[in-house]
C-alpha cells in the first residue's frame, strides 16, 4: 500500500539543506520557492530514505493571482508519494527551473505545462510548445483564455 508522506516531515528534512526555501507545508503538500525547485528535486531523489526516483505527474493550476506548479512524486523503492508544489505569483513572465535533469520524465510534461499555461522552465533543453502549434494565440488552460 502506498503511503503518502506528509509535507511537514519532509519539510523538516529539507530545512537543514535548504533554509528558508520551504514556503508552506501541511499534511499533504510541500510548497517550495520556485528558485529552489531543481535542487530540492535533486535532494528528494538522492537522499536515502526519501528516494523519490519517479515523477508521476507534473502540471500547473491557474489560481488567477498565482499559478501552482504541482509535482506528484513517487518512490518505486519505498512505495511512498509526495506532492511538491511551487507557487508562481502574477500572470506574466512566469519562470522556474526545469527538473528535466533530475527526472527525464518531466521532459514532455514541462513542455505541455509551458504550452498550456505559459510557464517557462529554464534549463529545459527543448522548451517548445507540445500540443498546439508555434504561434498559437495564448495559452489555453489559463483561466482567462476563452
Amino acid at each position: 500500500m502506498t503511503t503518502a508522506l506528509s509535507g511537514r516531515d519532509v519539510a523538516q528534512r529539507l530545512s537543514d539543506q535548504f533554509p528558508n526555501m520551504v514556503n508552506l507545508c501541511d499534511g499533504s503538500c510541500l510548497w517550495v520557492k520556485p528558485e529552489a525547485v531543481a535542487e530540492v528535486a535533486k535532494f528528494l531523489r538522492d537522499t536515502p530514505g526519501l528516494d523519490f526516483d519517479y515523477l508521476a505527474s507534473l502540471t500547473a493550476v491557474d489560481f488567477w493571482d498565482h499559478f501552482d506548479v504541482v509535482y506528484h512524486l513517487a518512490s518505486l523503492q519505498r512505495n511512498h508519494t509526495l506532492v511538491l508544489r511551487c507557487q508562481l505569483p502574477g500572470r506574466q513572465n512566469l519562470a522556474l527551473p526545469s527538473v528535466v535533469d533530475v527526472w527525464r520524465g518531466a521532459d514532455l510534461q514541462e513542455r505541455e505545462a509551458y504550452d498550456m499555461f505559459g510557464i517557462q522552465f529554464t534549463g529545459h533543453p527543448n522548451m517548445k510548445r507540445l500540443l498546439t502549434w508555434e504561434g498559437f494565440p495564448g495559452h489555453p488552460l489559463r483561466k482567462d483564455w476563452l
Binding site: 505527474s57 527525464r104 510534461q109
Partner: peptide, 27 residues
C-alpha cells in the same frame, strides 16, 4: 492519473490528466 482540483463547484476547477501514452514517449 487524474489530478482534480475542486472549488466546491459542480465542475472541477482544474482537471489534469496524466496520460501514460504521452509520458511513455519521453524515452
Amino acid at each position: 492519473g487524474f489530478y482534480l482540483v475542486s472549488d466546491t463547484g459542480i465542475a472541477p476547477y482544474r482537471c489534469h490528466i496524466r496520460p501514460p501514452s504521452l509520458i511513455n514517449l519521453t524515452a
